[in-house]
Amino acid sequence: MASKRILIVSTSHDRLGDTGSPTGLWLEELAAPYYIWKSKGFSVDIASIKGGKIPLDPASLSEGSTTEYTKKFSNNEHNLKEALQNSISVKDVSETYDAIFLPGGHGVVYDFPGNPDLVAVIEKLVAQDKIVAAVCHGPAGLVGPTAPNGEPIVKGKKVTGFSNTEEEAVGKTKVVPFLLEDKLKELGGLYERAPDWHPFAVADGKLITGQNPQSSEKVAQLVVVGLE
């Protein structure tokens, strides 16, 4: 049987609003799913909005954010490091995939919503009844795409993402262009959540979302269940 194919799409944005502070991809949210899926024998391609080098949020490399997956990345794991240095641009995505996954980091709230190339890729997969997954701020990429009936893809679906109280806890409610929890609700999503910083993920049909960085493994495992 042919290997299942997953496309990961990351942010290319490296600055937090007008503050000038560095941001980007939150490493755990990509590393955990990547290693879990590779261990299952899945084929995983990594793209970003602009292509090329993917910026990493420095905070995601700090000691307090270390996980077994970020340690594996740091310990000279060349394949993933090379993929993050040489990601393909989402506008050049032409292959067929069984699932798409959107990791977070604050960069995504600036370059995911409404990006026409990302919207096109997601809408194509939705129309093909393929898996669309995201974690933490990654569901910001679910803001623009619509289903074949013209409705937002999150409308009437159980969905989660970085909560208002978690955004408040990291002091960025006044910096981000919108609060993700509020936006998902505005679009008709049936927002669910766990207490702050607790692992939580939900699947509703082919839509799979996770609440925070602690939820990346849960999202990855739900994708595995959906593909097997």
Rank of each mutant, 00 (worst) to 15 (best):
H78V: 12
N79Q: 15
N79C: 10
N79Y: 13
N79P: 04
N79G: 13
L80W: 12
A83R: 14
A83T: 02
A83V: 00
L84A: 05
L84I: 07
L84E: 05
Q85R: 15
Q85W: 08
Q85G: 13
N86C: 13
S87T: 12
S87G: 11
I88M: 15
V90R: 11
V90S: 07
K91I: 13
K91N: 14
K91L: 06
D92I: 03
D92L: 09
V93H: 04
V93S: 00
S94R: 12
E95S: 14
E95Y: 10
T96G: 11
T96P: 03
Y97N: 10
A99K: 04
I100G: 11
I100R: 12
F101D: 15
F101C: 14
F101K: 03
L102W: 13
P103Y: 09
P103C: 08
G105Q: 07
G105I: 02
G105C: 11
H106M: 14
H106I: 12
G107R: 07
G107V: 02
G107H: 09
V108N: 01
V108Q: 01
V109S: 07
V109H: 02
V109T: 13
Y110S: 05
D111A: 02
D111K: 08
G114K: 12
N115D: 14
N115P: 04
N115G: 01
P116H: 05
D117W: 11
L118I: 01
L118R: 02
V119P: 02
V119S: 09
V119I: 15
A120Q: 14
V121Y: 08
V121C: 05
V121I: 08
V121F: 05
I122R: 10
E123T: 04
K124R: 15
K124I: 05
K124T: 14
L125G: 06
A127H: 07
A127C: 02
Q128Y: 08
D129S: 15
D129T: 09
D129V: 11
D129N: 15
D129C: 09
K130T: 07
K130Y: 06
K130H: 06
K130V: 09
K130D: 07
K130W: 05
I131S: 05
I131A: 05
I131C: 02
I131H: 06
V132K: 00
V132T: 09
V132L: 05
V132Y: 11
V135N: 08
C136A: 01
H137V: 06
P139Y: 01
A140E: 00
A140V: 01
G141L: 07
V143F: 10
G144T: 02
G144Q: 03
G144W: 00
P145H: 01
P145D: 04
T146W: 01
T146H: 15
T146K: 15
P148V: 01
P148L: 07
P148R: 11
N149H: 09
N149Q: 10
G150H: 06
G150K: 04
G150Q: 07
E151W: 03
E151G: 05
P152L: 04
I153G: 00
I153S: 00
I153Q: 00
I153Y: 01
V154H: 12
V154Q: 08
V154F: 11
K155A: 15
K155M: 10
K155P: 03
G156T: 01
K157I: 08
K157R: 15
K158E: 13
T160V: 01
G161K: 04
G161E: 08
G161N: 08
G161P: 03
F162R: 12
N164E: 14
E166Y: 10
E166V: 08
E166R: 14
E166A: 09
